[in-house]
Simulated assay, not measured.
Amino acid sequence: MSLLEISVLPGKGRGYRATSDIPVGTVLHVSEPLATTLSQEWTPETCLWCFDFAYPKKQKTKAVTEQEKLALSTQWSVAPKHLSFKDMLFCSDTCKSSCQTSLQSEWLPTLAMHYRLDCEFKNTCNLPTVAAPIEPEFSKHIDLNNDEALSTWLNHAWTCLTEHLDIHRDFDHTDMSMSRLIAACILRSQNSQHANLPPFHDLLVIQNNELSHFRTHFNASLYPNHPQQLPLHCTKEVYLSMMPDEVLDVMALYCFFARAMTKPLHKVPVNAGITHDLFRSIFFRERANSFGLWEMGNDEVANATGGVSDDLELLGFGIYPSAVYFNHSCDANVIKVRDGRSMKFISRRMIDEGEEACISYGSVDEDVRGRRQRLLENYHFVCQCTRCIQEDLIIR
C-alpha cells in the first residue's frame, strides 16, 4: 500500500497526505523526471543523464562520436567542423546508452533541437523590442480578475504579438537551459507512447501559473481610471504598450525558440509542431513546479537540508510530475534528496496518519517577511504554514 494519497486540502488544493503513521527516515516517494536540463555554466562538468559532477574535470563521453558526426553531417548537409555538441556529455558509455535507450526515437530529434538552439543563440539579435506608451480605449473592457476573460485576452495578445516571431531581447545561458527543457517536453508531447519516461499529459495536470504571473506583473496604476480592467479590443501597438516587461520577456523567448526550431537550416530536421499555446502550457507550469538538481552533498547535509547547501552547485532543473503534490511548509516534515536522475522524498520526522506531507520550496532561513515575499514572487502564494503564522504573531 502506498504511504501517501492525493487529497483535496482546504485552502491548498491537492496535496499528499499520509495513509498511515510514518517513522522518521522513511522513503515516502520516488519520482522520475519527465524532462531535465543542465545549467549552462556546468555543462562540461556534468553528465547529461545522471548528473554526475566531475568539476574541475570535463565529462569524458561525447554524445556524438566522430563516426556519428560524419553520418549526421551527410544527413543534415552540414560540414563536420560546424557540428558541435560540446554541451552534451556523459560520465560513461553506460549513461549514454541509458539515455539513448530511454529516449528511443527522441534521441536524434534531441540532437537536432540542441544544434538548432545553439545556432540561433549565436546568431540572434539582442536588441530588445521597445514599446511606446499608448493610452488604450476602454469603452469595451474585461475584468482582470475574470479567469476565462483574461485567458482569452492573453491568447489574442500572444497570437497578435508573436505572429512574425519578431520580439527580441538579450538572451543568456539561463534562457538556453530553459529552451532545452521546453524542447525536451515538446518531444515528450510528440512521443508519449514511450513507456520509459513519464507521459506528457502528466505535465498538464500541474497548475498553470500564467494568469497569476500576468496579474503579479501588470501595472494597474498606469490606468487609474480603469482599475482591474483591460481593453477588450487592442491593436498590436496597444498590446505591446500594455504588456508587462516580464511577459514580453517570455514572448521574446518563445520567438527565439520558434525561430530556432522552424527556420530553414541546411537539412537539419525542423519541428513544425511549435505553437505559442504549447510553449506557454510548458513554460508557465515549469516556473513554479520544477525541481533544482543540485550537486550531491554528504549524508549529513542531505539529512539536514534535503541535499542543498551554500557550498553545493545547482547543476540543472527537472520536471517531476508526481512530486508536485508535495505542498510547501517552512517547517517541512519531508526532505527531498536527488539520487541520480530520481528524486527521493524522505520523512524528516514522524508523520501521523492523515497528516499532510510537505517539503520546503527553497531556503527557509529568512525571517517570515522575507520567506513570504520570495514565495509570493516565485510561487504565487502567501505562506500560511504554522511556522509563518506563529512568527507573524510575534512580530505583530
Rank of each mutant, 00 (worst) to 15 (best):
P10Y: 01
P10H: 03
K12A: 07
R14C: 12
G15F: 06
G15K: 03
S20A: 14
S20Q: 15
V30W: 03
E32K: 08
A35P: 07
T36R: 09
Q40R: 01
W42Q: 11
T43N: 11
A54G: 13
P56W: 05
K58G: 12
T61W: 07
K62W: 15
Q67T: 15
K69A: 12
S77I: 01
V78Y: 02
H82D: 15
S84R: 12
S84Y: 00
F85C: 02
L89Q: 14
L89V: 15
C91W: 04
S92F: 10
T94L: 12
C95W: 10
S98P: 00
Q100F: 10
Q100R: 14
T101D: 10
L103C: 03
Q104R: 10
Y115W: 08
R116V: 01
L117C: 05
A131P: 03
A131E: 05
E135S: 12
H141T: 14
L144R: 03
N145H: 15
D147I: 02
D147T: 07
E148Y: 00
A149V: 10
L150F: 03
L150V: 13
L154V: 13
H156S: 14
H156K: 12
H156Q: 14
W158M: 13
L161M: 15
H164V: 00
D166F: 02
H173E: 09
M176K: 09
S179C: 11
I182T: 02
A184P: 06
A184T: 03
L187C: 06
N191D: 03
N191F: 13
N196D: 12
P199L: 05
L204P: 02
L204R: 11
R215L: 10
R215D: 11
T216D: 08
N219A: 15
Y223T: 07
P224V: 07
P231T: 02
C234G: 04
C234T: 09
T235C: 08
T235R: 12
E237H: 11
Y239C: 06
S241T: 03
M242T: 08
P244M: 05
D245M: 11
E246D: 09
E246P: 00
D249R: 13
V250M: 07
A252S: 13
F257K: 02
A258D: 00
M261V: 00
M261K: 00
T262N: 01
K263S: 10
P264L: 07
N271V: 01
H276A: 04
D277T: 04
F283C: 01
R285L: 08
N289V: 01
E295N: 13
G297Q: 08
G297V: 01
N298R: 05
N303V: 04
N303M: 10
A304K: 15
G306P: 06
G306R: 01
G307D: 11
G318C: 04
A323V: 05
A323R: 01
V324Q: 08
N327H: 06
N327T: 12
H328Q: 13
D331Y: 11
K336F: 15
R338S: 14
D339P: 00
G340T: 12
S342Y: 03
M343C: 14
S347P: 10
R348G: 07
D352E: 13
G354E: 03
E355F: 02
E355D: 15
E356P: 07
A357W: 10
I359M: 04
I359D: 06
G362T: 05
V364F: 08
V368E: 14
G370T: 14
Q373N: 12
H380T: 04
H380R: 05
F381M: 04
C385S: 09
R387C: 09
C388E: 02
I389Y: 01
Q390G: 05
I395S: 09
I395A: 12
